[in-house]
Design a protein around this nucleic acid. Structure first.
Length: 281
DNA sequence: ATGGCAGAAGCATTCTGA
């Protein structure tokens, strides 16, 4: 099962590029960020015509996330939610559409567009850290329910200096600070694994290149788009690939797709009960 | 310290991103 994430920086501007990529790669699940469009004018039909279900959570101009899936998702939820009434933090984040989740093939897919944060010390930076803390609480609750999780999207954080083309230049700055890395680690808590680092231990692999200063041509990038999976799923993980080709397109997104291959093809979704599998909840 | 590049909104220019 191919699961991909891609910050497309406007679904309407990038539509033909996304459809081309789907036709070439044939992903089972494609999670999008920065769709930048209200739900009532999201181009749903082109994806449905390719056999996908489309779940969207967007707004005008900014943010916006979507799950495009061959298997119809269940329990689709938009934004943070909690089964306990105590979590009043959630109300604060309703105006920015940055998270959509759904159950697909026994895995809870959590698609996120983490705030950028602008610069350390700013109000936006505080929002970013608060948002990540809320995500940590959200995952705590999912873990308590025994969910198998795939948390993926644009995190706007380079997890280590290996994930920045010039770590000295950007040391301690936005997307590279210890505060952000600690907040991210508090989300992961060792229970979620960075798929890419299972296969690649070296630097030099990027998922985002700034539009400015010829950054792509100079290969001055960052790895800020990630696919984290529950520990229990790592034995099923066959690959994690950053596909940099779409960044070469005319009028590209500044991000490029990241995808994993999870070997779930021996699983019959219709007969979970008959299977003696670790992923049962 | 600033700008550089891009998209949306909307028609000149501002806001936001990373």
């Amino acid at each position: 099962m191919l699961i991909a994430t891609w910050n497309v920086n406007s679904i309407r501007t990038r539509l033909s590029q996304i459809l081309d990529w789907i036709n070439q790669v044939n992903p089972d699940i494609l999670c999008l960020q920065e769709t930048k469009v209200m739900d009532n004018i999201f181009p749903v039909e082109p994806f449905e015509n390719l056999g996908y279900s489309v779940e969207i959570y967007g707004q005008k101009s900014y943010n916006g996330v979507a799950i495009i899936s061959k298997i119809k998702p269940e329990n689709v939820r938009k934004g943070f939610y909690s089964s306990t009434d105590s979590d009043q933090n959630i109300e604060v984040f309703l105006d920015q559409k940055r998270l959509i989740s759904a159950d697909i093939s026994g895995i809870k897919i959590i698609n996120v567009y983490v705030p950028n944060g602008s610069e350390l010390g700013s109000n936006k930076f505080e929002y970013k850290i608060n948002w990540l803390n809320c995500l940590a609480s959200f995952l705590d609750e999912q873990e308590k329910k025994g969910e198998l999780i795939c948390l993926l999207g644009d995190f706007n954080i380079a997890p280590s200096n290996l994930d920045i083309h010039d770590p000295k230049k950007y040391k301690g700055g936005i997307m590279a600070s210890e505060v952000e890395r600690n907040a991210l680690n508090n989300v992961l808590k060792g229970r979620l694994i960075d798929s890419f680092r299972i296969f690649e231990k070296n630097s030099g692999h990027w998922s985002w290149w700034d539009y400015r200063n010829n950054a792509f041509e100079l290969n001055k990038g960052w790895r800020i788009d990630h696919i984290y999976i529950s520990k229990e799923l790592t034995s099923k993980l066959k690959s994690c690939v950053i596909d940099s080709l779409p960044r070469e397109n005319l009028r590209p997104s500044d991000h490029t797709p990241v995808m994993i291959n999870l070997e779930l093809n021996n699983i019959n979704v219709d007969s979970f009960e008959d299977e003696d599998n670790f992923y049962e909840i």
